[in-house]
Design a protein around this nucleic acid. Structure first.
Length: 346
DNA sequence: CATACGTGGAC
DNA sequence: TGTCCAAGTAT
């Protein structure tokens, strides 16, 4: 039965696999880069970033020698920015600790910054043919449906059970191919919503299908409560210049640049006096714009932008920059959204 | 082990 | 409009 499933999946993959820039390259650098970019990220969203990185950095050493600013700039808009910092740190690890040569075993690969069990299994199997089964969101979905696992998949015991099943299912002769087949199948056919059971080559083996539970498997326990936050960005504009500040080490968008920010607990529009008091500056609000909320898994972020004029020379902790060079900074997506429709469109 | 970390697309 | 969640990792 396991053999039959393995064969059908392999056959399906050869017929249905997408052509992707990093696929079948056999190049550990490119596979690693693609895996980092694709963490919690869809192929369509990540591909342009993959192409930009490989175009700019032909080798890991070039990546290691780049500035963090340049790497963050290339990463801008992709989210989970610690991935970019870890990517840079890992490139330096490879250059300095592995002689510039990509480590070749699971145990050494997982030492790299930003590389956990999933990514180490993916790289070692795809680039080096090591028999390590990957378990990502796709694999969890395919296996839990195939074997009819009704318990919560975020339970540690159940996760261990799924890892064991993935190990048993893995084709030890072609682990890289098989891992990609599992993920591709989960991404294209055994999808979270409206899976293509009608054309599924495994449907006769699928226990969730047999029990009419495909729609509710995999089951996840509890959902996170979301916190609402209200960000008021002060957009000072005078003679082609504006102020930016850099965010701190904690919280969202760490280290990225933004317009001077006042955060409030509830949703209301600030007036000139409140802004002057907070920024210790004399400014006047010309226009306020509310931007659609930004939804995170654990937070709802709302943005208000206040276009202001006046005197801000004495404001400390802010950097006066030319509006033309604004886009050389890594800006949170919320601000990009404002810039798309507002004044700084030169 | 629970929580934080971004963004965009689908329904 | 709200909710889910996607090739996860670090702390």
């Amino acid at each position: 039965m396991i053999n039959k499933i393995r064969g059908l999946l392999t056959q399906w993959y050869e017929l249905n696999k997408r052509t992707l820039p990093w696929r079948d390259s056999g190049d550990a650098y490119r596979i690693w880069l693609s895996e980092i970019i694709l963490q919690q990220t869809r192929v369509e969203q990540g591909t342009p970033y993959y192409l930009a990185f490989t175009n700019r950095f032909k080798t890991i050493t070039e990546l290691a020698d780049a500035s963090e600013d340049e790497i963050l700039k290339l990463w801008q808009g992709l989210g989970y920015y610690s991935r970019a910092r870890n990517l840079h740190a890992a490139a330096k690890q490879i250059k300095n600790e592995f002689g510039g040569k990509f480590p070749t075993s699971y145990e050494s690969i997982i030492q790299l910054k930003g590389v956990g069990p999933y990514t180490a299994a993916a790289i070692s199997s795809i680039a080096f043919n090591e028999a390590k089964a990957v378990v990502d969101g796709n694999v969890i979905r395919v296996i839990s449906r195939l074997f009819g696992i009704e318990e919560a998949v975020n339970n540690a015991q159940v996760q261990k059970q799924i890892q064991t099943l993935a190990d048993e299912l893995l084709d030890h002769a072609k682990p890289g191919m098989f891992n990609q087949a599992m993920m591709e199948f989960g991404a294209l056919y055994c999808t979270p919503k409206n899976p293509n059971c009608a054309e599924c080559v495994l449907s006769t083996f699928c226990i969730a299908k047999k029990n009419n539970l495909v729609a509710v498997v995999p089951f996840k326990e509890k959902k996170l409560k979301r916190r609402s936050r209200f960000f008021h960005f002060i957009v000072f504009e005078n003679e082609g210049k504006t102020f930016l500040q850099q965010r701190g080490e904690k919280d969202v968008w760490q280290g990225l640049f933004q317009f001077p920010l006042i955060e409030t607990e509830s949703d209301f529009e600030l007036d000139s006096d409140m802004i002057n008091q907070n920024l210790n500056a004399e400014i006047q609000v010309n226009k306020a714009v509310k931007v659609k909320k930004h939804v995170l898994s654990h937070q709802d972020l709302w943005g208000r932008f206040y276009h202001v004029s006046g005197e801000m020379q004495n404001v400390s902790n802010y950097k006066l920059v030319s509006i033309n060079e604004l886009h050389t900074f890594a800006l949170p997506r919320l601000i990009d959204r404002y810039l798309e429709t507002e004044p700084f469109n030169a």
